[in-house]
């Protein structure tokens, strides 16, 4: 029997066209000679040249990368802790509130998270005089808060699908709980932690709404810069910038996929060799 009938295949093709045509069209028009972003006027690389000569864009990119690296790292550390607490510590005081606090940022509309963070920073400045101005620190704190819960979700689900008997075996062999965590649990869930970090990194790098509320004058991240330009309409230099970003992301994702695939294969091979050696 044909498991993929014509109807399903055509829906899939239509869906992929729907997903990719806008992006491809945007990339195509980045090579447009004309100032009008949507009317073809001949082939040109001029917008790319202007892009790389633009200090503002370079500065914003550097700031975005700094914030994303810092916030993803802290979000991964704190988020992993929360994931371990939820998956391994069955009972502790305030667990219900903790579970709520971990899931709430996932459903909170970004505009509300943004406004509430800004209000917090303003109130703190009134009461304790910190933060004096908004910028790198405030953006990073807000990003950590909402991306750590994604890390927690990933780590928690990996831990609950993991075989507890390995940890129990280590305990039986005399490991302290803390040793079990560092020597057994963390290495096993490392791929989950890594994908949590990647997700936190991209969320931070991509964020517009929360950043726009928690940033101050002079601290423009790349998405905020794009946001302020895009609100004025479609321009070919944004098309060029978008093309560069899409290409970087596509290459990055393909590379990460390739590395993951290879390490998986190597692990399978190791396991098979271990089995073969034991029989």
């Amino acid at each position: 029997m044909n498991r993929r009938p014509l109807f399903l295949m055509s829906c899939l093709c239509f869906g992929f066209a729907f997903l990719y045509v806008p992006i491809l069209s945007m990339m195509f028009f980045s090579f447009n000679k004309s100032r009008l972003a949507t009317v073809w006027g001949g082939f040109s690389f001029q917008w790319y040249g202007k892009l790389f000569a633009n200090d503002q864009i370079i500065k914003a990119t550097v700031l975005s990368l700094k914030i994303a690296l810092t916030s993803a790292t802290f979000a991964t550390i704190i988020g992993t802790m929360a994931g371990i607490a939820l998956a391994r510590f069955r009972v502790f005081r305030g667990r219900t509130l903790f579970t709520g606090l971990v899931t709430a940022p996932l459903i909170m509309p970004e505009v509300i998270t943004g406004i509430s963070s800004l209000m917090l920073f303003i109130m703190m400045a009134e009461w304790i005089g910190w933060p004096g101005s908004r910028g790198f620190t405030t953006i990073t704190i807000a990003h950590i808060t909402f991306s750590m819960t994604y890390v927690t979700t990933i780590v928690q689900s990996r831990l609950s699908s993991m075989d507890v008997s390995i940890e129990e075996a280590a305990m039986d062999l005399g490991s302290k709980p803390w040793q079990v965590l560092t020597d057994v649990t963390l290495p096993i869930i490392f791929p989950a932690i890594l994908s949590g970090w990647l997700l936190a990194f991209t969320i931070s790098l991509d964020d517009v709404v929360i950043t726009s509320f928690t940033t101050g004058p002079g601290n423009t991240t790349l998405p905020i810069l794009i946001w302020s330009k895009v609100r004025l309409g479609v321009t070919p230099d944004i098309n060029a910038l978008a093309t560069v970003i899409v290409m970087v992301v596509a290459v990055g994702v393909a590379l990460a996929g390739y590395i993951l695939h290879r390490s998986e294969k190597r692990r399978e091979k190791d396991i098979q060799m271990a089995i073969a050696a034991n029989t």
């Binding site: 997903l19 990719y20 045509v21 806008p22 992006i23 069209s25 945007m26 028009f29 972003a37 949507t38 991209t202 991509d206 517009v208 998405p223 794009i226 946001w227 895009v230 309409g233 479609v234 944004i238 098309n239 978008a242 970003i245 899409v246 992301v249 596509a250 990055g252 994702v253």
Partner: peptide, 17 residues
């Protein structure tokens, strides 16, 4: 893949269309 590219730029792509 589109999910990893910028949300803002995907909206922008439709503004062009």
């Amino acid at each position: 893949l589109p999910f990893w590219t910028s949300f803002l730029l995907r909206v922008y792509a439709w503004m062009g269309l």
